[in-house]
Design a protein around this nucleic acid. Structure first.
Ligand code: MN
Ligand code: MN
Ligand code: ZN
Ligand code: ZN
Lengths: 123, 123
DNA sequence: TATTTATATAGTAATCATTCCTATTACTAT
DNA sequence: ATAGTAATAGGAATGATTACTATATAAATA
């Protein structure tokens, strides 16, 4: 895979935030540096970067968000403000339970907990 | 909400399978009974039925699937054949852990475990 | 039962995220 | 510096979902 300024910029943008950005948000940021970058280039490079193991795609409902954090972790999704927070809840036992009980080879466990974050406390 | 033959047919179709069907699959089935039903009617009524608590929407990557099983449960997704299986893994403790540790009010926990099901055993 | 009223539908157009296409650009090995 | 070729920009195409609207049909009423 040949170097490109576009891919490097996109990688840096994803790595610069912990907001799990969408392709369109990344596109907007990338235009500050490369004004005529195209959205197709953003999508193509996000896919490359995923294959290279530099990031992962997570789905927030039906739309894709991108996450530089490759450690196994889960997400809290606030239905009020839409924010996604990283959490470490992964129960190591789940993997072996599933393997034994359902004879299912596990690749990865994706858990999203939907609710209301602490920015919206009623008194 | 006024009765409609379309909504009742759609409800019965969702309740007749445990394959977590897509809107398009439900549309195909519904046409057997109501040949000129439209896809928009399927989507609109699936949304009604969700609001009525008769079914839930789950996202398989970026596409919506519909599930009549309203009990808290998780899913195994086979990346080979694409099937989705119900499993009971819900750890009741997760909810209180999240509430205490992250001060996050939990509505629901959605877990999808991606891997390979037992139909694809190598010997 | 016939009439009325308003809600749901069919059919189609519009939207939105994502992917595809292709002539042009720009890495990089020589 | 040049050639070879992978990556890009820009725009068209796709696929799922939603919006629009004239017509059909529940169902309340006379
Ligand atoms: Mn994350
Ligand atoms: Mn299910
Ligand atoms: Zn919030
Ligand atoms: Zn399978």
């Amino acid at each position: 895979m040949r170097y490109s300024q576009q891919r490097e910029t996109i990688r840096e943008i994803v790595y610069s935030t912990n907001t799990h950005p969408t392709a369109d948000w990344i596109f907007g940021r990338a235009k500050r540096t490369i004004p005529n970058i195209s959205l197709g280039t953003v999508y193509r490079n996000l896919k490359c970067l995923e294959e290279m193991g530099e990031l992962r795609t997570i789905f927030d409902g039906s739309i894709a968000r991108y996450d530089w954090n490759m450690d196994p972790h889960d997400h809290l999704k606030c239905k009020v403000c839409g924010d996604l927070f990283d959490v470490q809840l992964m129960d190591e036992g789940i993997q072996s339970t599933v393997r034994k009980k359902y004879k299912f080879e596990v690749d990865n466990v994706e858990m999203t907990i939907v609710g209301t974050c602490n920015k919206h406390k009623e008194k």
